[in-house]
Simulated scan of single mutants.
Amino acid sequence: MIIDAPTATAARAARFWAAALGATAGPFAPAPQFTSLHHAIPGLVTAVQAVDDDPRIHLDFETDDVAAETARLIALGAQEVSQWQECRVLSLRQLEVAGQRAGVVGPQSARAGRGQEPLEKIV
Rank of each mutant, 00 (worst) to 15 (best):
S91A: 07
L73W: 03
A68W: 04
A47P: 02
A98S: 06
H38S: 13
Q83Y: 03
L119M: 12
V81S: 04
C87N: 15
I41R: 13
I41L: 14
I2L: 13
L44K: 15
Q100I: 13
A50V: 04
Q108D: 10
A71N: 12
G113I: 13
V51Y: 00
P6W: 00
G113C: 09
D60W: 04
I2H: 09
L59S: 15
D65Y: 02
G99M: 06
T9I: 05
P27E: 07
D65R: 04
A8D: 06
R72G: 06
A68C: 04
D4V: 01
D54G: 02
A5E: 02
G99V: 07
R93G: 12
R93C: 13
L92K: 07
H39N: 14
A47G: 04
A31S: 14
A112M: 05
V123F: 12
L21Y: 00
E117A: 15
G115S: 10
E120F: 15
D54R: 02
E117H: 09
V104M: 06
R101A: 14
T63Q: 07
F34T: 11
A98C: 03
A13E: 04
A10G: 00
A23L: 03
L21N: 02
P55I: 11
S36T: 08
G26L: 02
A20G: 05
